[in-house]
Structures are given as structure tokens and as C-alpha cells.
């Protein structure tokens, strides 16, 4: 592997990792507050891909992107209020089954509405401009993804550390019951979490699918699981952790594919998951809470 191809793979890996990081934040935030693996998050991400296809067919990209984000947020909120809100006080297994059921419903809905065949993802022209630096060629989206990810994460961290709603979110994830007693409107905090998670999933989906070029009703499953692993790797509940996990999985996956082990790249992610859960269940940046594992 020459230096140029190495740099090329690093760039691709960072770009993929950025998209993973944005999705992983959605998992980690919901898990931090509700202790729920939001299985439907992967399908919200997939749906965002379809929304973009339809939005781009009738409007220019700079209008389509905000429209897609708004519609995806609406979908995320709908999923939360239909599938999770009624089960707030139920055992964890029921909520998880409800999440799996919702993911099943969204996939079947996508098959029904958009058919199971892959659909071409629209080309967002400015994102596709390619650069040539030395021997390395890259499109704008490859450079933009990590930068955008870092900027969005810094914004999110600011929001969580310096605003009232952010303080409420931190309180709820520390102790659900006590924060309720302190007068925090739990439902509002949870809805807000889903708004942020879905918006980031929508942005992540634009960045992810621009490189992949097609969407199917099942294209959310694997990235979704990988992003959950990323969230666990970084320490569930921790946003910087999710970002580190996302980048790590993106880069290692790209290199496994480059070395010719593409069939094992998925298996590697899950092996990583099992290893982390055994040796460091709190992840890289997670706080030690004995209840978790």
C-alpha cells in the first residue's frame, strides 16, 4: 500500500466515520435518557434517504435539505409518541420489543411505499465536486463530512452544557425519577432528544447515501447496528464517545475492505462489540454505572 492509497483510505474512512458518528449520537442520547436501544433509529435514517429522493425531485438541494431534516424530525417524534411514550412505565423488555416492532413496521412501510428495489440517490452537485491534492482525489462530501460532524458535535455539546434544556437532559440521564421530582418535564426532554437524534440522522443519511448512491428499505439495518456498536464503544450516554466510536469503526471498516476482508468487516464490528462488553462495558468514555452490565 503506497502512501497515496493509504491517505485515500484514511479520507474515505474518516468520511464514513463522520456519518456513523452522527447516527451514533442519536443512539447514545436516547439510551442515556430512556435506557432503550432505539432500533427504529436505523429505519428513520433509511427513511430520511427516501425523503431526500422525493424532495430532490421537485426542489433544489438547498431547500430540499432543510425540508428533509424537518420531515425526518417529524417521523422521529411520531415514532416516539406512538411506540415509546405509552410504554414509559413498562418493563424494559416490552419497550425493546416495541422498538423492534416499530423498526419492522417502518421497513415494511418502506417496501410498500417505495418497493424493495434499490432507488438511485440524487446527486447533490456541490457535494460531488472532486478535488485533486497531490495524488489523492476526494469529493467535497468526503472532506465536508468530518468537518460538519465536528462542528455539529461542538454545537450539541454547547447546547447540552450551557442551556436549560441541556441541563434538563443531563439531569434526566443521571436520574430519571429524581429529575421528575424536581419538576423537569420528562416528556419534553425526551421529545427534544428525539428531535436532535432524528435531525442528526437526517444529516448523516445525506452524507452517507451521497457516497453510496442508492437506498433500499433494508439499507438502514447494518449501518444502524454498527452505529449502536460505535455508541457502546465510546461509552453509551457520552456524545464525544459516540463520535470517537463512529470514526474508529468507519476507519477500521474501510481498511478491512481495502485489505480484502470486506466480508469480515461487518463481523469485525460485532466482534469488537462483544470484546468491549466483556472487557470494558462502560466503553472508552462512559461513566461507571454498575447497573448497566
Amino acid at each position: 500500500m503506497t502512501f497515496t492509497t493509504f491517505i485515500q483510505h484514511v479520507l474515505t474512512g474518516i468520511s464514513l466515520g463522520g456519518a456513523y458518528a452522527l447516527i451514533a449520537i442519536g443512539y447514545t442520547m436516547v439510551y442515556g435518557i430512556l435506557l432503550l436501544i432505539n432500533f427504529a433509529h436505523a429505519d428513520i435514517f433509511m427513511m430520511a434517504g427516501y425523503f431526500m429522493i422525493f424532495a430532490m425531485s421537485s426542489m433544489p438541494w438547498f431547500i430540499a435539505i432543510p425540508v428533509v431534516i424537518v420531515v425526518t424530525v417529524a417521523l422521529g417524534l411520531a415514532v416516539e409518541s406512538v411506540a415509546y411514550k405509552p410504554l414509559r412505565m413498562s418493563p424494559r423488555m416490552s419497550i425493546m420489543i416495541s422498538a423492534i416492532g416499530m423498526s419492522y413496521l417502518l421497513q415494511n412501510l418502506a417496501i410498500y411505499l417505495f418497493s424493495a428495489l434499490p432507488r438511485a440517490y440524487p446527486v447533490i452537485t456541490p457535494l460531488k465536486q472532486s478535488f485533486q491534492i497531490g495524488g489523492v482525489s476526494a469529493s467535497l462530501v468526503t472532506i465536508l463530512t468530518p468537518v460538519l460532524t465536528i462542528v455539529l458535535v461542538l454545537l450539541l455539546m454547547f447546547l447540552i452544557n450551557n442551556t436549560k434544556i441541556g441541563m434538563a437532559m443531563r439531569a434526566v440521564s443521571k436520574d430519571y425519577d429524581t429529575s421528575k421530582l424536581m419538576g423537569i418535564k420528562i416528556n419534553r426532554v425526551i421529545s427534544f432528544t428525539f428531535i436532535i437524534g432524528s435531525a442528526l440522522a437526517a444529516i448523516g443519511s445525506i452524507l452517507y447515501f451521497t457516497d453510496r448512491m442508492s437506498v433500499t428499505p433494508f439499507s438502514g439495518i447494518l449501518p444502524g447496528l454498527k452505529c449502536f456498536v460505535a455508541a457502546v464503544l465510546g461509552g453509551i450516554g457520552s456524545i464525544p464517545g459516540a463520535v470517537i466510536g463512529g470514526f474508529f469503526i468507519g476507519i477500521s471498516e474501510t481498511f478491512l475492505v481495502a485489505l480484502g476482508y470486506s466480508t469480515f468487516s461487518d463481523a469485525f464490528t460485532f466482534l469488537l462489540l462483544i470484546v468491549i462488553l466483556i472487557f470494558r462495558p462502560t466503553g472508552l468514555l462512559g461513566e461507571a454505572i454498575t447497573e448497566k452490565v
Partner: peptide, 26 residues
Amino acid sequence: PVLRLKSDYLAIATLGFSEIVRAIIA
């Protein structure tokens, strides 16, 4: 290793195992 985990962690780890089996078979 896996049965030491609880609830959703066990679920996601076994799900991971099932995906590993599938990847190895293919």
C-alpha cells in the same frame, strides 16, 4: 462471555453473534 451481560446488552451481543455467523458463512 455473553451470558454475563444483561437485558439489552445481551440482546445486542447475541444479535452481533448471529451477524458474525452469517458473514463467516458467506
